[in-house]
Design a binder for these strands. Structure first.
Lengths: 217, 217, 217, 217
DNA sequence: GATGAATGAGTCTTCATTCAT
DNA sequence: GATGAATGAAGACTCATTCAT
């Protein structure tokens, strides 16, 4: 745990073969699932290996330690996530459409990789332990990307001038995350595709237009 | 973890003396602090005892095990929380005012007991582990209380008729929780009272009126 | 455990009042029951106190430690036991009658105090630990008493001359003990008094006349 | 203790290698020795491991917990024991010879594996704790086997018709067990082979022909 | 690369014993 | 005498990590 920073910097080895790379991916996928279910501390390396269908000793061929797996998930998946946020920010499609795509993206990502989001949120976003040994700024980038989208839209007049982009980014992120949490926890049951689409519409409406009725009802 | 439910139901003993009750409170307070700092898994019973200024063995006079302490924190504080949500729901003050009070309540609770909220958020609300071994319904009551507030307001015409109260309750809860998470994480630095007040106003505005500008766009 | 010998020699105090003596008896009775059920190591002082209906701290007013309670059971009860064995040995009633009385005595003692016998056998007679810290000779006296009874009977011609009194005492003691174990374990169900009487007769017959049919049946 | 049954049913894993199987045997042998010396409760897992020449953690690769080791000793040895009893029962050699072999078997087993018998007697046969958490029927099978031997012999006229086979099986088993206990406790010192043989003869005589002199005295 | 046997630091938890009240 | 709060030594058990095969 103490050498976490170092470990993160020093991948155990570069993948030499395709198979090797596949095994590494399998471990990351398995770890994502197990971390999501049990949390970092509650996850056993043996569980991860079992989930990945390999011997537990093999994990240490690919990662220095358990912490290093979490770091890899973070490094290799979070980046994609933030990349998309920036892409959306750079799209010339208007704020409503940007938000629509963001919400859709979240819901889609969750539908495809619910565990990844869970780990990101629970283990990365909240963990002092983790953040202390990594750059908290890297985590914050996601918030800042959304903040930027809102700020620019505000500058264009597509967001109310009174809105504080930073605060608003927390609202947006929080709302999205709680929706996804509802999915994962099973408190929001959505078995059909249309239901997911309906949620996207609803969330979008609430975030953009608020709860209070617009104009003369 | 498997006997957690049982443990929760069976307090080790009724407080016989004032001193006994005080020690129990000391342990709960200390545990709240340590759980907030290190997380449930990362917290050592010995740390909790040290923080409480007692021998670690004494913890087991008052609680069955570590899990039981977390359960006690949850049980004894969450009820107060839900009670307030219901009080707000019963107030005859209009939806905007209800929401104002809710948001203020959340921010205030955090300001007064940041560790408690941290534990609630990180170890209870977000923990599969906890939710799986306890009555998730107890947790959901909070969501339902907000859902009811929104539903009634919609019936009164104070919330747009197109809004789905359940979905909206997730947005509201999620936004509030992420705000507090920002406080907890220190990514939202708020050292001054006015800053907190500003956040409340902002959050209220976004939730009620949305990000999009009102008036004639 | 190390000062067991010392502890045994030094009763914590002489009973000053009748009530005091009664409490001491209650502890001994309770301990006998708990030791029988859980063994010495498995028995908790708290269980003994609860069984006795007193606070666990009070146990230490009457005994130095847990070991001391066992020693007291041994000292104060075993003596009575051996005394009776000697009485039987001194009776001028013939070997068959002596054996009859012995067997009856065992069955009776067990019927009245099965726990006492269980403790004697399991924790005293069979325990290296106990025997190491006490005079094993004291325990052996019971065997020797039976051995003497047999030896004298042999000298009188009432026992086959080929019989080794020492070995025979083990047979007698073992048979009796296993019978009683059957009662306690519930593998030998005896709810009616006649059943017990029947067992005494059977055991006596087998021990005295053997399994093989006597001459012309 | 409550999951003991479950643990017993579920070996931690099947031996994958010869070495693995050897280590498991080493642990069982070491545990037998330590249990015999200190009793189940008094035995430390660390002692067992030290005796086996391994790290204590390794014990938990092979067994779920301490109780599980005792259960394994019982399961894997008792079966052999009962098997032999049945073999003797099926022999067509007459009752006297059957008994002779039984007694010889018991004495031999003790001579070869005194610790094993000590554990069987002290921790298995006598322990409520053990018997409560396991199938007592499995233990009783041994009694029943002897009972059958006696019953059949009675039917053949080789045992007195007045004998109750069940009661008699307790006498036989009890006598044998106490003899072994004498060996175990060291109260019956037998350093020479002839002494053991003498014991067998004596026990056989007492059990078959009884203490009372046969014929006309 | 792969496996899983082996290690032992780290914790939780129990419970005999003490002692203030 | 009586109580039970408090202490802390002792020991069971977990599991990340190493390494021989």
């Amino acid at each position: 745990m103490s050498q976490a920073g170092e470990a993160t910097q020093t991948p155990r080895h570069a993948p030499r073969t395709t198979r090797s790379a596949q095994t590494r991916e399998r471990i990351i996928a398995a770890a994502t699932e197990v971390f999501a279910r049990s949390g970092f501390h509650g996850a056993k390396v043996a569980d991860i290996a079992e989930q990945a269908g390999i011997a537990y000793g093999l994990v240490y061929h690919y990662f220095h330690n358990k912490e290093d797996i979490l770091a890899a998930i973070f490094t290799e998946r979070w980046a994609q996530y933030v990349t998309y946020l920036h892409e959306v920010g750079d799209m010339d499609v208007g704020f409503r459409e940007q938000m629509r795509r963001l919400v859709h993206f979240w819901v889609e990502v969750y539908r495809r990789e619910p565990d990844l989001m869970t780990v990101m949120i629970n283990e990365v976003t909240r963990s002092y332990e983790f953040l202390e040994s990594h750059d908290i700024g890297t985590v914050m980038v996601a918030f800042e990307a959304i903040e930027q989208i809102i700020r620019k839209a505000r500058d264009r007049g597509e967001v109310a001038s009174s809105v504080d982009p930073q605060l608003a980014s927390y609202v947006v992120f929080g709302a999205a995350e709680m929706l996804l949490t509802g999915y994962v926890m099973g408190t929001l049951r959505r078995d059909e595709q249309p239901a997911f689409a309906g949620d996207e519409t609803q969330m979008l409406e609430v975030l953009l237009d608020g709860l209070a009725p617009r104009s003369p009802t």
